[in-house]
Design a binder for these strands. Sequence first.
DNA 1: CCAATTATTCTCAACGTGAGCATAAGAGCC
DNA 2: GGCTCTTATGCTCACGTTGAGAATAATTGG
Lengths: 346, 346
Amino acid sequence: MGGNDGPAGGTRIDDGTGGGLVIGLNAVIVAVTDERPRVLVVRRAGHGLGTPSEPSPYDDLAALPFGPLDPASDRTLELALRRWVREQAGIGVGYVEQLYTFGDQNRDPRERTGGPRVISIGYLTLVREDAAPAQAGSRWRDWYDYLPWEDWRGGRPAVLDDELQPSLLVWCDAASDDAGRRRRRERVDIAFGFGGTPWDGYRVLDRYELLYEAGLVTESKRDRGDDGGEISGRLGWAMGFDHRRILATAIGRLRGKIKYRPVVFELLPETFTLLQLQRVVEALAGQPLHKQNFRRLVEKGGLVEGTGRLASGTGGRPAERFRFRRDVLRERPTPGVGLPSLPSSS
Amino acid sequence: MGGNDGPAGGTRIDDGTGGGLVIGLNAVIVAVTDERPRVLVVRRAGHGLGTPSEPSPYDDLAALPFGPLDPASDRTLELALRRWVREQAGIGVGYVEQLYTFGDQNRDPRERTGGPRVISIGYLTLVREDAAPAQAGSRWRDWYDYLPWEDWRGGRPAVLDDELQPSLLVWCDAASDDAGRRRRRERVDIAFGFGGTPWDGYRVLDRYELLYEAGLVTESKRDRGDDGGEISGRLGWAMGFDHRRILATAIGRLRGKIKYRPVVFELLPETFTLLQLQRVVEALAGQPLHKQNFRRLVEKGGLVEGTGRLASGTGGRPAERFRFRRDVLRERPTPGVGLPSLPSSS
DNA sequence: CCAATTATTCTCAACGTGAGCATAAGAGCC
DNA sequence: GGCTCTTATGCTCACGTTGAGAATAATTGG
């Protein structure tokens, strides 16, 4: 969302009580290219995909595409999303899933200066990047640029121990009483896997929210009125509005979903090698997988079937091309790629 | 929701385009008492918890509690929900989780006659029934009254084979072309577990939506303008608006959640016997569980700890009272009660 | 032909899960 | 008290799944 009040923005609502209400939809449009999970962002916060407006202090920030709901013509929320994503970005999205509705006060900073309250319904959509090149005003970004601590593919991210743990512990200790300190500490331990607690790849939102509460991300400072936060640093790039929260929600949801629904295939071409498939799953999950076991999982699990054709040389022995095996939907209730706790090798 | 436009209804929005927009919140308030999963319903559709209005043809239908969002004073959506649930039902809810935002056109039949488009943000909340007696205008209902085919505790529900399968197959065959027939058939098989596909307890919404599409539930007839559907039958009781869909969403979500988050304990007293715990899980999951294995799961899994005290005689050997072991949150990423595919004995 | 690289097949141990037997400890009844 | 009924609790066993890695196959580039 954004809180656009122009034609590309949300649907204005006047409830007679004050600043009013705007309702609209945000899209987290995800693709995986070159083993990187990518999300489509628009250049300047507060814009629709291509509509410029007046300058603001946060113009540099990326934002998620935002579009309106037209109550007169959009029969469903999902159709509204598909409509404006097609109109604005030229993308015909395939998989679409509603994520969450965001409605906190002041999620749009302009509410402070009399702007309307902006409610945004977040959607996750999956596309293949080649089918959806970024247009002017928008671009694809590696989602780990915004949440670097989520990528464990190269091992445990250093920022966790160098920055996050110390800063978070300071915040825990800063609680007003002992019970508060304990509560904060428990939340931090569970979310970030400190103190022996295992890392849980799905708690993406929990982690971002703790960092926000602890004042460690630029957005917290901005929302408090401190205008000075830098836009990027070791704690990732900031986004406009609460869009990093929406992104975190999307990642967590997607990581959970691949375990029990075959959604990965929405991100892959018709046929693919098992290594390609593995790399896409790893990109989403942010963790490395054991190659042989992964193969066993998807093959014996009936998730894919060989095509008999081989992929052209990628450096070693040619790999067979596989395709998604649709019948698996009938056979198993939860056909997905279960992720291990956190393995090591390849 | 409901599409209340009175003070107890949603927040009116005038977008200048036509009938306007109303936004509000629906609560699926769940408790488990006497081994039955219950949901709080209000007596007449289209009402807030206690506010009467003009008569309508669907006054007999139950509906879910609905309340407004006050953009001026409710800081978050969840706080809005807590506020009006407390005000209207006198219930201080504990666990609250946003479910889904419902915004299909004509989900409120009054849209057809010029009423505003009603967007509703659905919430799931868990309470203990003893802490929340139903007040005038509302009552607790077994949720399987509305979705009888979801309760497998007494074995496979007869209605599945007697009514649902035949009627659904007729609907499948009624598709316009062969591809359509195949598509319908696949959806039906997967959702209802026909043709060898296993039953999946989480697909509650898929099932309801198929029945709705196939015109087998009263709500489909009502929404098509056929006014004659009966309010209850072997396919369960109807609800106002799309509230049965919201209920189905809640059940599916909750069934999924108990597997990896210890939410069941929100429905139980401070201490409980393992059988009590098992009955609550069975009530939610709609399936029987193997007693010894269930015990092993929750005990060895570190989910509960014994208190040393015994429960007074319930007919046999006294059982030890257990309590939820909070530390499990730090130890395991997904502490919940994993459900088996579909066991048999007790 | 050799080295490097990726693909593919197998093995093995550890663990979790489904199912059921066996025993324990109460209540009610004779 | 002894018997039966009922629920609680402990234990075993077979089997499938999972984590880890060894071993072998088929390419490409020297």
